[in-house]
Write a protein that binds this DNA or RNA. Structure first.
Length: 419
RNA sequence: GUGGAUAUAGCUCAGUUGGUUAGAGCGCCAGAUUGUGGCUCUGGAGGCCGUGGGUUCGACCCCCACUAUUCACCCCA
């Protein structure tokens, strides 16, 4: 059907769009306070970028990307997340020669071919941040505190923060070997997917929800206890930094994140109101990503925050978002002459920044008043022959039902004075 | 990819053991003595009853398929 949006997409109608605009303003303010500048990258990139950047072994790349050949026979993919494009841009535009760290944010749509569910769409929107060049835990703390403040400003409560460290390539390799050793005898008891994971990414087995796999992994060595000295110190630095800011967190050894590029710190903000898709925000450090995409070795960290899920959470917490500015004055006109006069009056008011409306449907006076009421106009005036002849009219306060005689050429001042 | 639920007006939903012109509330439009909204009343527009087959004298209702929506698994924002 051509009168239906494609699966997993939807229209954002005026009854919703003001909420999005509100969040966009909040995001811009937040990022200004933290010194993050906006970056806009293309909706599509070369498929190889995501294969390299997000990871060949991930579900996202293997089965969820919108990939197609363009007319020049290039393999193109719609972005399934925001980080890869930003990393590409960092390298391409030589941002390594900018003052470090480079702190960027974006507010984008992203695309994944997934089965629909509450809080999960094929076209979804993400507010994300990426910071390049800083390897200490202090920027990890900054980024987490930024999200925390964002939620606080929106009035959200009870959003849990889980953190973990998944180590660097060095200690993760050692840990993986240890884990494989532990799991090898019980390989037959693991699910099929985990048998695949055993060679590709054994860390993910810890995260498996299958009952039989959990049984096997109960006593498995944890990555946290097997971090190298540097990673351990980094994680301690993150925790004490959060303590210092009074940010509560829970260490969850099972957070692994589905994207391959993460190293050291990973974190997620969780709600139980959104349904099965409770992760409102997820992120972490990716110290090897810039290099593996072809840049010089550069540490990085970032997060992605799902706008749809955020809105669901705000709704379930009963948070009211202010609507667009109301119509200040409705000018009702009777007859053709008055209508022409009203057109000019409305234009003059609008030119000066006053939201004004007039009839466009040839409605009766009564219907015009009704319409003014539905628009939520604060004031109305009625223009007929007499008013135009005398240059005077009655200004009516719609809420209080009070009326006052005013001169037409002082209408602007009268409205301003009543604000 | 696996499993469940659902599909009637713009929205939220009724619709009798299968029976003749398919209903309500909200919303929209217009009126209720000629120039003033909200409350009330009256009227109107608006439905291929998701699509296609089947059973039946007869299907919104029963059966099958498809499509779409939705929830969960998985994955993730």
């Amino acid at each position: 059907m051509i009168t239906q949006t494609p699966k997993g997409t939807r229209d954002i109608l005026p009854s919703e769009s003001y909420k999005w605009q509100f969040l966009e303003r909040q995001i811009a303010d937040l990022c200004a306070d933290f010194g993050y500048k906006e970056i806009r990258t293309p909706v599509f990139e070369h498929t190889e970028l995501f294969q390299r950047g997000v990871g060949d072994t991930t579900d996202i790349v293997q089965k969820e990307m919108y990939t197609f050949l363009d007319k020049g026979n290039r393999s193109i993919s719609l972005r399934p997340e925001g980080t890869a494009g930003v990393v590409r841009s960092y390298i391409e535009n030589g941002m390594a020669s900018l003052p470090q760290p480079v702190k960027l944010y974006y507010n984008i749509s992203a695309y994944r071919y997934e089965k629909m569910q509450k809080g999960r769409y094929r076209e979804f929107h993400q507010f994300g941040v990426e910071a390049f060049g800083s390897k200490g835990p202090s920027i990890d703390v900054e980024i987490i505190s930024m999200i925390k403040l964002f939620f606080d400003r929106l009035g959200l409560k009870n959003i849990g923060l889980n953190i973990n460290s998944i180590g660097c390539p060095v200690c993760r390799k050692q840990y993986n070997d240890k884990l494989k050793e532990y799991l090898r005898p019980s390989l037959g008891d693991l699910c099929g997917v985990c048998n695949d994971r055993f060679n590709k990414n054994p860390l993910r087995i810890i995260d498996c929800k299958e009952e039989k796999c959990r049984k096997v992994t109960v006593g498995a060595p944890s990555i946290l206890e097997n971090l190298c000295e540097e990673c351990k110190n980094h994680f301690e630095g993150l925790k004490s930094g959060l303590d210092n800011l009074g940010i509560k967190y829970n260490v969850d050894k099972n957070i692994v994140r589905g994207l391959d590029y993460y190293t050291k710190s990973v974190f997620e903000f969780i709600s139980d109101n959104v349904g099965a898709q409770g992760t409102i925000c997820g992120g972490g450090r990716y110290d090897g990503l810039v290099e593996s995409c072809g840049g010089n070795p550069t540490p990085g960290i970032g997060f992605g925050l799902g706008i749809e899920r955020l809105l669901l959470e705000m709704e379930s917490q009963g948070i009211v978002i202010p609507e667009q500015k109301e119509i200040e004055i409705y000018i009702a006109a009777i007859g053709e002459e008055a209508d022409i006069y009203a057109q000019k009056l409305v234009f003059d008011l609008r030119s000066k920044g006053i939201a004004a409306e007039k009839d466009l449907m040839n409605k009766s006076l009564k219907a015009q008043m009704k319409y003014a009421d539905k628009l939520g106009a604060k004031y109305s005036i009625v223009l007929g022959e007499d008013e135009i002849k005398n240059s005077k009219a009655t200004l009516k306060n719609m809420k209080k039902s009070e009326q006052a005689e005013i001169a037409l050429d002082s209408l602007y001042e009268e409205i301003i004075n009543r604000r």
